[in-house]
Every structure is written in C-alpha cells, then in structure tokens.
Design a protein around this nucleic acid. Structure first.
Lengths: 240, 240
DNA sequence: CCCGCTATTTGCGCTGGCGCAAAGACGGCG
DNA sequence: CGCCGTCTTTGCGCCAGCGCAAATAGCGGG
C-alpha cells in the first residue's frame, strides 16, 4: 500500500492495463505496487539491465530510447500518464531493450516480476489488457518503420511533431504547446536525422507561420498546415 | 476438426502460442481450427480488411507487408512454419494493419475471433503465450527501427540477409541458401532502399565471395564475412 | 528450341541532407 | 548584473544513394 504522491491511486481504474478487473482486482494490484519517484533526467531503468519491474506512469513524462553500439541515441517513444512501460517484464524478456528517462519530474507505480506474475495468475484479464496494449504499440512501431523507409526527412519531422501534439499538446493562446522540454536534438533522435536539419526545417516552418519555436520549446500555431506537410498535399496556396 | 494437409496436427505442441496448455487444451484448440490453403502469391488477408481471424503457419512461407498511400510496398517481416500471424485479431484491433501474402505454397491453421476468444477464456495461458510472442516482435521491430535510423544502406542489407539466413537458411553445398524466392526488389522493401542499390551491393559482395546470387535466389557463402559487414568491423583483411 | 516476360545489371547525373565549423541566443546561477 | 554552459542557427562542401534509362540474362511455356 504505497504512500500516494499527489495523485489519487483510485485513478488506477482509468489505466488500460487494469481495465475490467473490478474494484477488488484494482485494490489487489495497488496493494502490490510501489511508488517510484523520478526527477527529471533520472532513469527508471537502463537498456540491458535485468527486467525486474513493470511500471505505469502516474505523473510526468518519460523518454524511452536505445543507444546504438556506436553511441547514437534513438528515441523509441515518449510515455505519458496512465501509460505502461517496462512491458518486457510481463512479456518474458530478460533484459530491458531500452532505457527510460524522465524528462519531467515524474511518479510511477511499479510492480516487480513476482507481483505481476501473481496478479496475472489471479486476474488473467490483465494479460488480455496488456496484449491489447502491446498490439497497439506494435502497430504504431510498424507505422514508424514504414515512415522511415518511405518518407523524407521533412515529412518525418512533421509526423513526429503531430504525434507529440496528440500525445502531449496543451492548448495555449496562439497555438498548441508541447508540454515538456524538447530540443532539436530530441526531435532528430525521433526522426533519424540531425539536429541541424531539424533546426533548418523548424526555422522554415516558423517563417511560414506553422510553428513557433524557442529553446527546448515548441508551439504548433497551424496544426492544419502541419498536417498538410506531414501527409501529402504539398505547398497549399496561402489564403486558406 | 480439420482435414490434415500433410503435417501431423499433433505438432501443435511445438507452437509457442499453444505452449503449456496440456494435451487436452491443444486438442480443444485444434477442434476449433480450420485449415487454410494458400497458393504462392495468394493473400491470407489484406491490409485494412476486418481482422476476423488469427493464424499459425504450418507449411510454407508468407510475407507481411504494408502499402503506403503512395503505393510503395514495405515488408514488415516474413513468417515461417509454427509462427503466428494476424495477431491483431487477438489484440483487439479491428482491421489488419498489413497484408499477408504467401511466397510459397502454404498451409495455415486459422481461428476466427469467436473461437480465439473462447479458447483464451478457457485457457488464459494462451494470452500469456501470445503476450510473449508480441513482446518479441515489438523488440525486433524496434531494433529494425533503430537500424533504419542509424545505419547506412549496405549495413541494413547485411542485417536483413542475416535475418533471412537465421529464419529461412538451408545448408547446401557451398553455403546457406535462402529457401524461398527473394528478388532484389524484395530485399529493397525490407531495407528501405531501391532494387538498384541492392543489385549493386550484392554484385559487389559476390565479387568478394560473400554471397552467390541468382534470379530470385540467394546463397550466403561466407556468413562470417556478412556479419563483418552488418556489424562494424569494416573491411577485414583477406586471409582469415 | 525459340519467344516473350520478368528480373537483373549498370551507367550517369543530380540532390537531399549530412558533417564540420563557427557564430549567435538564451537562461540560470553566483 | 554579468558570466558560462548549453542550445540553436547558419554557411559551405561533399557524397551516398536515388531516379532514369537502356542493355542483358534467365526461365517457363508453347
């Protein structure tokens, strides 16, 4: 029974992976959980470390990334509140395939391997829920792979930012702000390019009035214009 | 109770997704299955079609691919005997995210949504097995994504062929033969390049004595040399 | 054994985007 | 308030790999 940080644990019933368990199931799950505090920059786990726990993010945001043998970093995805991470621990994997780093101060609920095994034993529904989640992730990852294989850099950057907007966009006056710090380098790691190219691209977009950029800050002013670039319709006459 | 093609259905106990069910569980599963014959070139299902069945390949080989809006084809993976495909039907997806096409005459066991749901209900172990399989696929897809983002074409082709060898390689005199027809175009679709570049690359490798190529045929003569290229150690003096 | 179709090879020119390098901007801290 | 470290912008040259196009080579069928 963990000490709650500032989010009411009852909200566990809005977490997909614990859906359809009934109140007692969720209570049992909470019972076995422990809170993990992550300050911005801190890692929840590291690539190749033993996969000993499964997590659900409560508050904050994490970046899941891999390091290539050559030392380049590649971003797999960002995790927001209510999303699971470290799923390998439920999937029979021995080590984490990636590193999870907080990009904001965060709180996560964690379950060790043993607890998860017990819970799944008693509530097979959890396995089904996890399966559903994994299916979604796989489909999404395949879509990104397709994107990497067939689209040029500008278009990929467009998609990446559109994804960020959908996942972490906050309405502010003058557009939609990505609600955590994103550098040009970060966007480069999401899209398989260099920070230089990202910088040039965003500068161009800013001139077109599509985005507003700042130091580790990104606001989408014209979401429709962004979609135009990300999808296919190329220039689009001004006036619309 | 399907009419067996030529593979003894008892072999279902070597299929990961039905592991640890006990004989009666596997019998129940077989009971609900239907055989699907696929001639080379035929599709098991098409992208965006309603996901109404889940399959396990028995004999043959399939290609799972996506078509981009612009009409380019991208290969997600190849499926060999004992592997599951059409997993979305178990994962709550509504439509197939990709197309599955036989590249050899094949036989698959299929289960409709309803049957799968019933089986999972009675044998939750199936969900766990499927979860394990999905975890592996996700990890593998992420690895390919990382590859696409960080490696140049030659290296990617190397990896793709190494994967083919591991999955579908057959020892023959003079090397390891990929046991189904693969064209340059196919390899291009696996690696996100063009058939021209693949052709040039393979020709160069043939001159180095690493592979032996033919029309839709590929034999790896020097697996070690292939790994050298795929990994990092660059040229490697001859003599080893 | 020849024909036609498909797969493959190869030359050539072009360019998107990378790599390098250096010069600004922020923003936080002391 | 000014300094410093980090992030960002921008110029410049280069080259991997694409796109186009045309020539070849295998294979299967008649």
């Amino acid at each position: 029974m963990p000490h709650s940080p500032n989010l009411d644990p009852v909200l566990l019933d809005a977490v997909d992976v614990f859906a359809n368990l009934g109140p007692e199931g969720r209570a049992r799950a909470l019972d076995r959980a422990h809170w993990k505090k992550l300050e911005s920059g801190e890692q929840a786990f590291e690539q190749d470390a033993e996969a000993d726990a499964f997590y659900v993010l409560s508050v904050g945001r994490l970046k899941v990334s891999q390091l290539t043998p050559a030392g380049q970093e590649v971003t797999i995805r960002y995790i927001g509140p209510r999303e699971m991470f470290g799923c390998v621990a439920v999937c029979g994997g021995l080590t984490y395939p990636a590193t999870a780093t907080a990009v904001l101060d965060s709180w996560a609920l964690g379950w060790d391997r043993r607890s998860i095994a017990d819970l799944v034993q008693d509530y097979p529904q959890i396995a089904l829920n996890a399966l559903r989640g994994m299916g979604g992730r796989l489909t999404e990852t395949q879509a990104r792979l397709r994107e990497m294989q067939t689209e040029r850099v500008e278009r990929r950057i467009g998609h990446a930012i559109a994804r960020l907007v959908a996942q972490a966009g906050r309405r502010v006056e003058g557009g939609i702000l990505i609600d955590f710090p994103v550098s040009r380098q970060d966007i480069a790691e999401m899209t398989g390019t260099t920070l230089h190219t990202v910088s040039r691209t965003l500068t161009a977009w800013q001139k077109l009035g599509i985005v507003e950029v700042g130091r580790k800050k990104l606001t989408v002013v014209d979401p429709h214009g962004l979609v135009m670039i990300a999808e296919d319709l190329p220039p689009q006459q001004p006036g619309s």
